[in-house]
Design a binder for these strands. Sequence first.
DNA 1: ATGGTCGTCCAACGA
Length: 265
Amino acid sequence: MRIATWNVNSLKARWPRVEAWLGQVAPDVLCVQETKLADDAFPALSVAAAGYEGVHHGQGRWNGVAVLSRVGVDDVRHGFAGPPPQGASASEARLLTVRCDGVVVVTVYAPNGRAVGHEQYYEKLAWLKALVDHLDAVATPGDEVVVCGDFNVAPDDRDVWDPAACHGGTHVSPAEREAYQRIVDWGLVDVLRARFDDAGIYSWWDYRAGAFHRHLGMRIDLVLASTPLASRLEWVLVDRNARKGQAPSDHAPVMAGFAPRSPAP
DNA sequence: ATGGTCGTCCAACGA
């Protein structure tokens, strides 16, 4: 089973790239962030023609998350199942939970936070905290769960191009990293870090200043698997090719492969 | 030379 996550930065603008990528890579499940679509603008027919069942949670213009699956989708829940976070982000389309082939799939688009100390920064911390309550409401750590998406947090200094240059900004502050750690502590494994301990593996690069070609990025798009699912992990990668060429998103997809479940004894 | 780009939709603003 191949599970991928991709912040596409507008599904309308990116659909040609997403459609081609689905055709070439054929993930079983793709979690999408920043569709920037209202639900009635989601390209359901095109998604179906590509062989996927799509579920979308959007509001138009900003945010918007989706799950595309070719192994079925049920138990759809839009937004928070537990207490929502304080602040405006509670009503934003940033969270969608479904079940695909027995795996609870949670797609997340965490608030950016704007600047350390800004009101939106504290809302981001509250949002990440509310995500833990959401996980408690929809699953237990003994279930097969994957929480993936754009967390807008670089978990440690290996995940940014220059820790000194990033110091004082969002995505790397101790409070954000602690809020992220509480999500992991629910019972999840960062599957990329389970396979690689290298610095310099990124999933996002600023459009400006040739950042991609200069290898100036951050790893903020993460696949977090519960222990029962992580035990089946075979491989994980960042598809940097999807960041190249004409009209790319500023994020690359991250994808993990899981072995089939062992047959019952 | 101290910025540099996208997306939303036409004016800034958010990332």
